[in-house]
Nucleic acid binder design. Structure first.
Length: 280
DNA sequence: CCAAGGCCTGAATG
DNA sequence: ACATTCAGGCCTT
């Protein structure tokens, strides 16, 4: 009964896209902005606010996307091995703060910091007889004291978080607008947030703003490109400059196509599993 | 434009 | 033990 396009909830959540998720018996529970999602192993969602969300992007035509990104042996293997892996569509503000926190860090610590932020600044609610803390609203983080934010273990990123929250509050960053406009415009805008460079911007664009051509290039992806694609994208240096990032991204999109972000997610997942890296 | 260095933090490594 | 390195970058000089 298992077709090629069944959602693999476990692998989708455990792929470095989201952090405030916990498995409890048969369900995954996750904070998504002001909502909480309870997801069954088959991908059925019940939410705290009782609203419809397309968290697993079921609007996407996976058959078409997979056909489009399967350009070579490596992607074919990754897609086959993790066929149920999905790009998630999460709350943009939470996503923005999450990836600002992620810079120069690792999954376990990102998770711990975000949990502290939610507990310190978010609203406590009960859902399915369990206690949760929603993700704090922009106005709360914009008004918060730097010391209190630092206390969540985010260090120098505290000021970035506060400033980012203020920009969202003042609509200098308008997520609804960014969702509609094209990749380049949205990227430029999101990069104007302090603490947001190319990599963080691409994560936010791909995981919350509907930009499937975003292709976050972190250390892992650079490693993967060097390992499997050195013939296609020559990487001279280990750390890439801003300009190199832009050029590389253009080459990537012209190779993988408009759904390059999906290719990134499959490759990233595969490589980290090969190295047995831990997830949530 | 590019390269180098600093930065919070906590777990892993020597 | 204690020092150093490293982890899913970004910013300033």
């Amino acid at each position: 009964m298992q077709d090629n396009f069944t959602i693999d909830v476990e692998n989708s959540i455990n792929s470095g896209q989201v952090f405030l998720w916990e498995k409890n018996e048969d369900y995954w529970y996750g904070i998504n902005g002001q909502d909480i999602l309870r997801v069954s192993s088959s991908g059925k969602i019940k939410t705290f606010l009782n609203i419809k969300t397309d968290f697993f992007r079921e609007k996407d035509n996976l058959e078409k996307i997979i056909r489009s990104i399967s350009k070579d042996k490596i992607t074919k293997i990754a897609v086959e091995q993790y066929s149920g892996l999905r790009i998630l569509e999460q709350d943009p503000f939470q996503c923005l703060i999450s990836f600002i926190v992620s810079a120069n860090s690792n999954i376990q610590k990102i998770k711990s910091s975000l949990e502290k932020i939610s507990k310190e600044f978010g609203t406590r609610v009960e859902f399915q007889n369990k206690e949760f803390f929603l993700f704090p609203k922009p106005e709360i983080l914009a008004e918060a004291s730097i010391d209190k934010i630092k206390h969540c273990g985010v260090g120098y990123r505290a000021q970035f978080i506060k400033d980012a929250a203020e920009m969202v509050l003042l609509k200098k960053i308008d997520f609804e607008y960014l969702k509609k406009c094209e990749y380049k415009i949205a990227k430029e805008k999101i990069c104007s947030v302090p603490g947001v460079g190319n990599k963080v911007a691409d994560c936010v664009l791909l995981f919350s703003l509907n930009k499937l051509e975003a292709f976050p290039l972190d250390r892992w992806m650079i490693r993967i490109l060097g390992k499997y694609y050195s013939d296609k994208f020559q990487l001279e240096t280990k750390t890439i400059t801003e300009k190199q990032y832009i050029i590389l991204h253009e080459k990537i999109v012209s190779y993988f196509g408009p759904f390059a972000g999906y290719a990134q997610q499959f490759l990233f997942k595969m490589e980290r599993e090969n190295y047995q890296k831990k997830w949530l």
